[in-house]
Each structure stands twice: as structure tokens, then as C-alpha cells.
């Protein structure tokens, strides 16, 4: 058998894309969905919001941690609030209201720990296009190898909104469900300091480096053009298949491609350094998965 692992998996698909069509049913569904205004189908505000302090007394009360356990509904409701975050647990879902995601992270850690939640809110340096945006959310790799809990519950995280207001506080709402004791992480971008490596460095439309038109140049020519713009370089080794898929990995920082090799992609690594991708060649280092 010469099929690759991916080919074997592809052969297991019960439905192929070319078999799919959009008929009247699809059009009816669209019409039914858009018949209601977006705000009309929005879920009602959760009950815990009414439990939170409001008005003139809010400031003083919000500084106090509040843990409540009531039997008012069919299932107990647990809430926790401090100056930075308010959490309600009802049924299988924890709803976390973060007042400002850029606030003191210790307040979040304290609140999450109170209810046994394994959630980390990470603020990472990013390029200007990703500032104040949620970059990722979900279970972390360190939790991937945990034994699946009884009942097969997986971790689920949802975040609203994905983009913070352009300035000031960044309020976020997280909804956590499933195996909430497995590690989960929400990553939010902040403005990178000069030279700080971007956490969002994959090539994207609008990358300011595109104006330099580095793709297709030799490494030597690309380096010269980068130097002319006050930029250094790091490297990635990448390849593409005729079908359009591809791969890349990061070689050791000390590795340098031969000057005559072609640049297949380029994007900003930090405000002072660009990443140059070259196609793999014989003798190149090989990827070594870690973790």
C-alpha cells in the first residue's frame, strides 16, 4: 500500500464535496434565518446579571468578592465576582464576564481558582492588524493527552466578542462547558514593543511586508532589500504540492539558506525582523516535533 495517512483518511469520507449542491432547501433556510433581525434571536440575558451590583453602589460592592449558592431554580446557581470578573455556573455552563481583559491577571486567576476552572487568559504581543483581537480560544495542548473523562466530555470555550473596542477597557464574555478542569486558554493580542516577536506571524493579506515584493527573489536579493528597509531576517522551510496544500517548519535560529535559493513567502516576524520562507532542499534540517 502506498497511500499516505492523509489519503487513507480521505478515503473514509462518507460524503465528497463534489456531491454537495445548494437547492431550494438551502435558499429556504437562508430566508428563514434572515427573516428575524439579529437582535431578535439573541439569547436573553443570563439571570446572574441581575444578581450583580449596579448603580451607585456598584463600585464599592464590585471590589468585594461575592460567592453565592442559591436553590432558586431547578439547578443550583453558583456565582463569583470580584473587581475584575464575574462568574456564574449553572448546569453545565460557566459564564465568565471579564470587565477588562487587559486588567490585572491575578484577579482572573483568583476568580477562576475559586470555582476550580482551569482557564488562562494570555495577552500576547501582535502585529498592528491583530491588536486588541482574540487570537485563539480553546483547550491547550497540555490538556490533549489527558485521559478522556467518564462520559467523554470535551472542553468547550466560546468568547464574545472577538474584537475589543479600539481603546480603553476590553470586556469579554467567556462560556465554558464540558471538562472545564482540563486546561483552556484564551489568547488576546496587545501592541508589540519594538523588536518583540509577533505571536500572529503567519502570512496574511495586508501584511506591510508585501510592498517589498520579496517572493521569488533569491535569498541574497531579499536580504539586501530588507537591509535597505532596516529589517533583519529569520527563516522557515516550506513546500507546496500541486494540489495547493503545503507544509512549513522553523529550523534552528543559526541555520541559513544558501544565498541563491528562492524566497517562497515573506511576512513580518517583529517590527524589526522579517520571516523568509524557502523551499526545502537536500541537506536541509528536518522538523523535530516537540511537546
Amino acid at each position: 500500500m502506498t497511500a499516505s495517512i492523509d489519503d487513507l483518511v480521505a478515503g473514509l469520507a462518507t460524503v465528497r464535496d463534489e456531491e454537495l449542491t445548494s437547492g431550494p432547501g438551502a435558499r429556504e433556510l437562508l430566508a428563514a434565518i434572515t427573516a428575524e433581525r439579529p437582535e431578535a434571536v439573541r439569547a436573553p440575558r443570563p439571570r446572574y446579571a441581575r444578581l450583580l451590583p449596579a448603580g451607585a453602589a456598584a463600585t464599592a460592592l464590585a471590589a468585594m468578592a461575592l460567592v453565592a449558592l442559591t436553590g432558586a431554580g431547578p439547578e443550583p446557581v453558583r456565582t463569583y465576582a470580584n473587581a475584575a470578573v464575574a462568574i456564574e455556573h449553572k448546569g453545565e455552563v460557566y459564564e465568565v464576564r471579564v470587565k477588562d481583559a487587559y486588567a490585572d491577571q491575578r484577579e482572573f486567576a483568583e476568580a477562576f481558582a475559586k470555582l476550580g476552572l482551569n482557564v488562562r487568559l494570555s495577552i500576547v504581543p501582535v502585529s498592528p492588524r491583530s491588536e486588541r483581537r482574540v487570537l485563539s480560544f480553546g483547550g491547550t495542548a497540555e490538556g490533549d493527552d489527558r485521559q478522556m473523562p467518564t462520559g467523554g466530555r470535551t472542553r468547550e470555550v466560546d468568547v464574545t466578542p472577538f474584537t475589543c473596542p479600539p481603546a480603553g477597557a476590553c470586556p469579554l464574555t467567556l462560556r465554558l462547558s464540558g471538562d472545564v478542569h482540563s486546561p483552556m486558554e484564551v489568547t488576546l493580542g496587545r501592541r508589540a514593543r519594538p523588536g518583540e516577536v509577533y505571536a500572529d506571524d503567519p502570512p496574511q493579506q495586508g501584511d506591510p511586508l508585501k510592498r517589498l515584493k520579496l517572493r521569488g527573489l533569491t535569498v541574497a536579493d531579499a536580504l539586501a532589500r530588507l537591509r535597505g528597509n532596516g529589517l533583519g531576517a529569520v527563516y522557515e522551510i516550506g513546500s507546496f504540492t500541486p494540489g495547493g496544500s503545503g507544509s512549513w517548519f522553523t529550523p534552528a535560529p543559526s541555520w541559513r539558506p544558501a544565498p541563491g535559493r528562492r524566497v517562497t513567502g515573506a511576512w513580518l516576524h517583529s517590527s524589526q525582523v522579517a520571516t523568509l520562507m524557502v523551499s526545502p532542499a537536500e541537506g536541509d534540517p528536518q522538523p523535530t516535533p516537540t511537546g
Binding site: 499516505s4 495517512i5 516550506g238 513546500s239 507546496f240 496544500s245 503545503g246 507544509s247 512549513w248 517548519f249 522553523t250 528536518q286 522538523p287 516535533p289
Partner: peptide, 8 residues
């Protein structure tokens, strides 16, 4: 064959 570390 060892899978590459990333795909584009």
C-alpha cells in the same frame, strides 16, 4: 513518512 510540522 514523518509528517511535516505544519501545513499552509
Amino acid at each position: 513518512p514523518a509528517a511535516p510540522a505544519g501545513r499552509l
